[in-house]
Design a binder for these strands. Structure first.
Length: 124
RNA sequence: UCAGUCGGCCGGACGGCCGCUCCGGCGAUCACCGAAAGGUGGCUGGAGAGGAAAGUCCGGGCUCCAUCGACAUACGGUGCCGGAUAACGUCCGGCGGGGGCAACCCCAGGGAAAGUGCCACAGAGAACGAACCGCUUCCCCAUCCGAAAGGAAGGGGCAGCAAGGGUGAAAAGGUGCGGUAAGAGCGCACCGCGGGUCCGGCAACGGAUCCGGCAUGGCAAACCACACCGGGAGCAAGACCGAAUAGGGACGGCUACGCGGGCAGCUCGCUGAAAGGCGAUAACGCCGCGGGAGCGAUGUCGGGCUCUCGCCGUCCGGGUAGGUUGCUCGAGGCAAUGUGCAAACAUUGCCCCAGAGGAAUGGCCGUCACGUACCAUUCGCGAAAGCGGGUGGUGCCCUACAGAACCCGGCUUACAGGCCGGCUGAUGUC
């Protein structure tokens, strides 16, 4: 499992499918190559000061680490967008949130790539 | 003991499980990603946020701005004196003013008789020194008392005055005595102000003394004048490597040339055995001129510099995305000694102490401190209310402010809780 680092990759994933949860938003995108699962984290300025943003990102990273690899699908990029609730939400609850979010993403995923492409246009 | 004041320090500890980044060693010299540059991957040892890492407000180092050099203008900053420093708007030591019983604290603390400007409201008057109420001599009118001289209160006029009242943030030196019709630095004493001389101090300034009766505010965080300082931009600086696309150079072709010049280095012809000679041509190159574009915030002077002046196919160099580097040994820490009131400096010894880059330094849990609230119990003092302390249990907070981003010196702002020391005042005991 690799980290997502390039800005272009983040923008590509932002156009994919997304699922909301209490403490975060999950976005994902299927890649054309055969590379490993890649995951990135986004925590914007409006979530708090640098210290708080760091803490949110670290807790999200820890969530992914605890997750069993099977729940994510190969050759996909994932991005977790942090929310302020991630600061003090119970860790076990957040782990359950992430599992169900990935599950919903999977049901939504196959066959519905076109709805997924249309979805991000709405907020614009 | 209480209250205050100044300075310094810490800012949870230990353990378990699972991770992250960097450095060193070992190992594979292999696999994966990428067009390439380059990156990722194993085991093991070590290191890994702050006092403010923050705000980005000053000062530097470093880097670039084609080569920036002088002068000036503009703009910005600083503004008691001396010292420290690489430098500063910082720090230290003084001086002056203000506050506090004191320790101590605060001060944008140079120039207002160079000039311009402003001073609301109130008030008569707010800066060519003013006269509202008022005070006073004299003259006139008329009333009362009185035999008269004269006295009392009132109105008007010509003058004098600035004491008292009133307004205001501020009213033209202050207080007292003399003086006067009433008054006034009109005169005198003290204080204040200005000037001179002498003494002390490197200086800011202080002290003494003499002279001048002394109208001549406040605001320069209003313009301004004076002195001093500053070229600009920033690690997204800069250096190296390096796709796609657009543009540039070389070669080949098409017959395209800003102007002019002469030249044979390249070219062609003739000649010669060759070296070379003669001639032609000039589109490359060279020289000159010209046009255009670009060159510090601006100007002048100087010195100049770079690019450019046809189109199509192959190769090459600059550059963008991207990658690597810059990147941490430094005005570095700690200790001792010496110098200095101190800031600090010098010498010697020891130490190596984060280097990320969609951004590591963490996540989850346990135990224990610390703090706090409640309950129980117990001890001391006390008539009691209550106060102070110990022990145990439970809950809360399970830490405040806050996350390095090229590096240093400062300033400013934020901060739960705690520790240590100096000094001052009050009270009690011996």
């Amino acid at each position: 499992m690799d980290r997502l680092r390039q800005r272009a990759d983040f923008l590509a994933v932002a156009n994919g499918a997304r699922v909301n949860s209490a403490a975060f938003v999950v976005q994902s995108r299927r890649r054309e190559d055969l590379g490993p699962i890649r995951i990135g984290f986004t925590v914007t300025r409006k979530n708090g000061t640098a210290t708080e943003r760091n803490r949110i990102r670290r807790r999200l990273r820890e969530l992914v680490k605890r997750l069993d690899v099977i729940s994510m699908r190969p050759h996909h990029d994932y991005v977790l967008v942090g929310r302020r609730a991630a600061l003090d939400r119970d860790f076990a609850a957040m782990l359950d949130d992430l599992r169900s979010a990935l599950h919903r993403l999977e049901r939504q995923g196959p066959g519905s790539t076109e709805t997924a492409r249309r979805q991000p246009k709405k907020p614009d």
